[in-house]
């Protein structure tokens, strides 16, 4: 066992290697490892969050579906009601129209009857005048007797 200047050389080597480790090995590795740890933690947190989001979205979707179903039922009921109403309205309108048509037809018929009567009356009056004229063997002055004839027609 002989202690000599090798000791000084070894101490220098030792210090040099400590310096390398302290300067170039430990800090970058520690940084990388911490960063990775953080990334993993972030990833896990993101996964957790995504899971919660998914559950929430499912709840939302279910709620939306229920609401839509409710709305649909409502709309169907409403439309059925409306359809019944329309049918009812149509029936009422049709009935009114029919009555109106019937009334107008009746009026026309009456008018027609009246006109026919009028025509008939005229003819009868003419016939009577012609008959009277033949009987009297002379011309009746139609113009002179217009008033008489009109009175006669009215009486008929």
């Amino acid at each position: 066992m002989n202690i000599n200047a090798t000791l000084i050389g070894q101490a220098i080597w030792f210090a040099f290697f400590i310096w390398i480790t302290m300067k170039f090995v430990w800090p970058p590795l520690q940084r990388a490892m911490q960063e990775r740890q953080k990334q993993i933690a972030d990833g896990l947190a993101a996964g957790e969050r995504a899971k919660a989001d998914l559950i929430q979205a499912e709840h939302k979707a279910a709620a939306a579906l229920t609401e839509a179903k409710g709305r649909a039922t409502e709309i169907i009921a409403l439309s059925e009601k409306r359809a019944a109403q329309i049918v009812e309205e149509a029936k009422t309108a049709a009935k009114g129209e029919g009555e109106r048509i019937i009334a107008s037809a009746k009026a026309e018929i009456e008018q027609e009857v009246f006109r026919a009567k009028e025509a008939l009356r005229n003819q009868v009056a003419d016939l009577a005048v012609a008959g009277a004229g033949k009987i009297l063997m002379r011309e009746v002055d139609a113009k002179a007797h217009t008033e008489l004839l009109a009175q006669l027609k009215r009486e008929l």
Binding site: N2, N4, A5, T6, G9, Q10, W13, F16, F17, I20, T21, F24, V25, W26, P27, P28, L29, A32
Partner: peptide, 28 residues
Amino acid sequence: FWTFHLDTLIISGAIGLFIFGLMAWAAS
């Protein structure tokens, strides 16, 4: 006193340079 054990100095130095160089390279 001023005797240097060259084998100790060189072998330990070479080992240190190799492994710490490698580790520093990997760390960089």
